[in-house]
Design a protein around this nucleic acid. Structure first.
Lengths: 237, 237
DNA sequence: AGAATAGTGTCTCTCAGACACTATCAG
DNA sequence: CTGATAGTGTCTGAGAGACACTATTCT
């Protein structure tokens, strides 16, 4: 009766259970023209043909050696960006989200700096936790979930630095924070907080914009690990 | 060339991609004798036959209508507990964690009060972020990850209330916090924090233990949503 | 000068840490 | 009484919010 592990693997029936579909979806955020935007693609085939959807696709066991590879592959294919901020949000699996049957998707979200070229995809501004077009599958829910996570984390992390370009001013960064938090922040507290985090370094350049005092340009310190503040901004959960 | 969505679904080839295995693992924590413990089962079959492993198994598309159902099913089967605190930790998928090939597991963790009956499973104390026996697959890593998440969340949430029985004293609760945080906490700050959270209510009973002043017994308020404190305890990341 | 944007000085408030103190029991 | 455990009073310090103030550029 007893078999070795090798013998077992030889005779292993990989289909004793019906395997659900495994896919990855990536909610790709950026800021354009002072608006938070999400990258969407138009589905080329059924189900939800021609409907807008999150960037995503099936795990390809031939190409991807881990789940995050699937996310990165999809991200690079649509944006050309190799190493953005990428975080796993959650995994949703059920028998209702996909008309083809039981389906599991692991949802990531990415934060992109403003410049990049797109491949058959388009930015959609986010208003009221949603985009203006209907989305395929449960993607509207996935988007709302990622947004909630982002909004929450912005209250106690420096995540928005990943939405900035190479160099930026503290005013720029504050505007992005305000965009995500959804309300104005005090400039003094904001500067104290961000400069105290020790993740930015001043460049030797300034930027002059709109007739006021020129602003110091900062860049992210090279060893930029995600910073967690010890207190949350007001408006926390 | 154009087909309707119904026609498409009729002819849909579910096996165009090789589907990875989808499983769920649940890291079930409890506190026994002043020690944090995790529930393990001994694997009845290959791979890793007779090795200890986390509670888990394949998603059964016939039984489970969503991913969390798989977690709950496994949890009930081993502990009889229906509705503990259950949180999705993360999803790990790669081609190295299971000798049978590409495999995805969604990891949940559960917090259980001290009493329950076990079905072919055993508690193992956690010391130095691990248990004393080797674990199957990458389960040691999954355990360490959940532990890290738990340790982190204890600094700014009231999660440990889910490890307590029906009624408990603040000293009891503080001991559980200290167990997880790994260092002693100030009684005064602790009481201020927990009582200020407005999630506990005093019962009309006290408990007298060990020759000192009797302690007030508390219970969780019925509408117990997870409380987030606005500041973290010291020792934060 | 005045408008506009960048950046500071400094007060208040909240809440965690510290620790000495009081309270209530058994023996 | 002493020892043990429960629980409080209250000071300090860190960091967020508020807001008046200064700084540097433009026209």
């Amino acid at each position: 009766m007893s078999t070795t592990q090798d013998e077992f693997l030889q005779s292993y029936d990989a289909n004793r259970f019906v395997r659900p579909n495994s896919s990855v979806d990536v909610v790709i955020f950026t800021v354009i023209n002072g608006t938070l935007q999400v990258l969407l693609v138009q589905r080329p085939q059924h189900p939800f043909k021609d409907c807008w959807a999150l960037v995503g696709g099936f795990v390809d066991t031939a190409q991807d050696s881990m789940l995050e590879d699937t996310a990165k592959r999809k991200l690079v294919a649509k944006t050309g960006v190799q190493t953005p901020y990428l975080e796993q949000y959650a995994t949703i699996g059920n028998n209702t989200r996909d008309p083809r049957g039981w389906s599991i998707t692991t949802v990531y979200f990415a934060l992109l700096p403003p410049q990049h070229t797109l491949q058959s995809a388009a930015w959609f501004p986010i208003t009221d936790n949603a985009v203006a077009v209907p989305l395929a599958f449960d993607h509207a829910i996935l988007l709302a979930g990622c947004l909630a996570r982002l909004r929450q984390k912005v209250l106690y992390t420096a995540l928005p630095v990943h939405l900035m370009g190479e160099t930026f001013t503290l005013s720029d960064l504050q505007k992005v924070y305000e965009l995500i938090v959804g309300k104005p922040l005090e400039a003094k507290s904001f500067r104290r907080r961000l400069l105290g985090a020790d993740i930015l370094c001043a460049t030797d350049a300034t930027r002059h914009e709109g007739g006021g005092r020129p602003a110091q340009l900062y860049r992210l310190k090279p060893d930029h690990t995600t910073h967690f503040f010890v207190r949350t901004l007001e408006g926390s959960a």
